[in-house]
């Protein structure tokens, strides 16, 4: 039926590329796949920013008078860094949901059958989610300034706080990547991605000073890496001395990235679409 005399020679004559440039190119190609989709689903971005904006308004105007934050000009100065930290960390959940979606649609199978740099699928995904988080961050800061938040330290310190917050959200993207690759559906990725982030962000210094909590809870909150992040960002925005909080937060971010990038890449190499 198909006895063609002229058999096709394999097209694989080109040498397989290696190196950093190759890794970057494939990662960027994958990132653009997701970034291109963002303006087509603007409501996704809108809803992702409405919730944190609502949080800012609710906390500032409903609880603002009731929560004592000695040492700060007002509750906004205390609260905003915490809420922003929570928002960008929550934003990492997109990574897990997106990967679970790719997995369920067979896209991961397709990509795994290509001669590309395989972890580029994860790097591209986390980078595009970082970009999305930058947008959410900017929107939050605009609202923050509208409700009276001010940078009371140096702008350089504020920039440092920004980098720290976004770096932390990037680190958390890798935790979410592992979750997204491990669960069996998009819905599960959504629940499994969010559920643990609520205690993580609320049992912390993000919304109230830990001193106001029962002592056992305060002990947990003080040890929470999310408290380190919040304290560091808050100190940097308010022109206070962050002490060791900055370095502890950086160490957590780097540690989480290294460990979970390794675990996620390993999981990816064994993943299978369902």
């Amino acid at each position: 039926m198909t006895a063609t005399t002229e058999t096709m020679e394999p097209a694989a004559a080109a040498p397989l590329p290696t190196g950093v440039l190759w890794i970057w190119r494939d990662s960027w190609t994958e990132a653009t796949r997701h970034l291109r989709a963002v303006p087509r689903n603007p409501e996704l971005l809108v809803f992702a920013t409405i919730q944190p904006v609502m949080f800012v308004l609710l906390f500032v105007y409903v609880f603002g008078g009731a929560i004592a934050t000695p040492g700060y000009s007002n509750y906004e100065q205390y609260l905003i860094p915490g809420i922003v930290a929570q928002t960008v960390v929550f934003g990492s959940a997109f990574t897990g949901v997106g990967l679970a979606d790719d997995l369920s649609k067979g896209m991961i199978d397709r990509l795994r059958s290509l001669p590309m740099y395989q972890p580029a699928v994860l790097i591209g995904r986390t980078l595009s989610d970082l970009a999305r988080n930058v947008v959410a961050f900017v929107v939050m800061m605009i609202v923050a300034f509208l409700v009276g938040f001010r940078v009371e330290g140096s702008w350089l310190a504020a920039l440092g706080a920004t980098a720290l917050l976004l770096g932390f959200s990037y680190a958390f993207s890798w935790i979410q990547a592992l979750i997204g690759l491990s669960v069996s559906s998009v819905e599960a990725a959504n629940s499994a991605g969010f559920i643990w982030m609520f205690p993580l962000t609320f049992v912390s210094s993000a919304f109230v000073p830990t001193a106001s909590m029962p002592s056992w809870l305060a002990a947990i909150a003080n040890a929470n890496p999310f408290t380190k992040l919040t304290n560091a960002a808050r100190a940097l925005f308010n022109g206070q001395d962050p002490g060791s909080d900055v370095w502890q937060a950086v160490a957590w971010a780097v540690g989480i990235t290294v460990v979970f990038a390794f675990l996620a890449a390993r999981k990816f190499a064994r993943s299978a679409s369902r």
Binding site: P10, D26, A37, G106, R110, L111, L114, P115, M116, S273
Partner: peptide
């Protein structure tokens, strides 16, 4: 992987992109 093409049991396309973008994306990864 350099020599094969795979069409899995379920269509593996990115629904958010256009047909042309889907194809070009794979092309760039090659």
């Amino acid at each position: 992987r350099q020599r094969i093409g795979l069409t899995g049991q379920y269509a593996a396309v990115d629904e958010r992109l256009t047909g042309s973008e889907n194809l070009q994306h794979i092309g760039r990864l090659f």
